[in-house]
């Protein structure tokens, strides 16, 4: 076995791991507080990436002539600034989604919540296809990705972009932990996640707290989309596959555990690169299959995942 090659593959996998971890984190934050799986998370994130794209390049004509995108004022931003802007827009969109679509439903059935998020997925997806076209767009990388831009460790190349993405992810995570542990809003959010009704009894306003949660989650999603748009190319359905990996990661780690999302993202990212490399049948394109199978197996034998809370069902 070629250990340098193995190490190289692991290093390559780490980039995707960071993306899956942060999208999984978005899913987990929403599941933990609102109890729903946000199927539209990927499309909302992609929309944010398009916002970054518009901020970067100015209003882009669609592939076929002018369009609605033309009325969005675009100023050529620098990449970090554009991504920050996109994350802020994404957070606002997440908050609005919670306020306008989720909260009015109250504690509706699973079916109603699935309908809302699937409806959002379809609508946002075709909105993007209409505004920006379905063709893939080049999205500039935030970190240098050229030929020589890497550290060499034990003969394998660790790209600057991988290190950079992890640095961003970890620093945002530290911020999140500080926010949750040391601010009043964070305390309220933790209380609402544990028990909305009890939180309400002690005077926490549950609605706005959930709205913060959605904003945070959508921010993570937007970050994931902006950071991965360079490698997967920006197109309306780019996050659909990523969403499966992220869901697999979240399920593996436990749907209500942020730590689980991080660990799950790592494992799924590694397996997504390593399994196709050593099992020829899978290949790159079919690497979604192991993730899906992992998800099914976990849901069957250990629905709580690695770190999730076991649910005790009253019958």
């Amino acid at each position: 076995m070629d250990y340098v090659l193995l190490l190289q593959r692991i290093f390559d996998a780490l980039f995707n791991s960071a993306i899956y971890s942060s999208l999984a984190l978005a899913l987990v934050i929403i599941f933990r507080s609102t109890g729903l799986l946000n199927f539209a998370q990927g499309e909302m994130a992609t929309f944010s990436a398009y916002i970054a794209f518009v901020l970067l390049a100015g209003p882009q004509p669609r592939l076929t002539g002018g369009g609605l995108a033309g009325i969005i004022p675009g100023v050529p931003f620098t990449i970090p600034l554009a991504i920050t802007g996109a994350v802020i827009c994404g957070m606002a969109a997440g908050a609005v989604t919670e306020r306008a679509l989720i909260r009015p439903l109250g504690g509706a059935s699973d079916l109603a919540l699935v309908n809302i998020t699937i409806g959002l997925l379809l609508a946002v997806n075709s909105l993007m296809a209409q505004w920006w076209g379905t063709g893939p767009r080049f999205f500039p990388a935030i970190f240098p990705t050229g030929a020589g831009q890497h550290f060499t460790i034990l003969g394998a190349r660790l790209r600057y972009s991988t290190v950079g993405v992890w640095a961003i992810l970890l620093s945002v995570l530290v911020l999140l932990v500080l926010l949750l542990r040391h601010t009043k809003a964070g305390l309220a959010f933790r209380a609402v996640s544990i028990s909305p009704s009890n939180a309400e009894l002690v005077g926490i306003r549950v609605g706005p707290t959930l709205m913060y949660g959605w904003a945070l989650a959508s921010g993570f999603g937007a970050l994931a989309a902006c950071l991965s748009a360079n490698s997967v190319l920006l197109e309306p359905s780019m996050m659909l596959r990523v969403l499966v990996y992220a869901f697999a990661a979240a399920t593996l780690g436990g749907l209500d555990s942020p730590k689980g999302a991080l660990v799950g993202g790592l494992i799924i990212g590694l397996s997504q690169t390593l399994i196709p490399a050593y099992v020829p049948f899978i290949g790159f394109e079919l690497s979604v299959l192991p993730a899906l199978l992992a998800m099914v197996v976990i849901l069957l034998i250990r629905p709580a995942g690695l770190y999730g809370t076991k649910r005790i069902e009253r019958v």
Partner: peptide
Amino acid sequence: LRIKGIHLALVTLGLAIV
């Protein structure tokens, strides 16, 4: 039989993508 509700929605969506 064991995967229900929203989790089944998730698995079937994965199936559609795969």
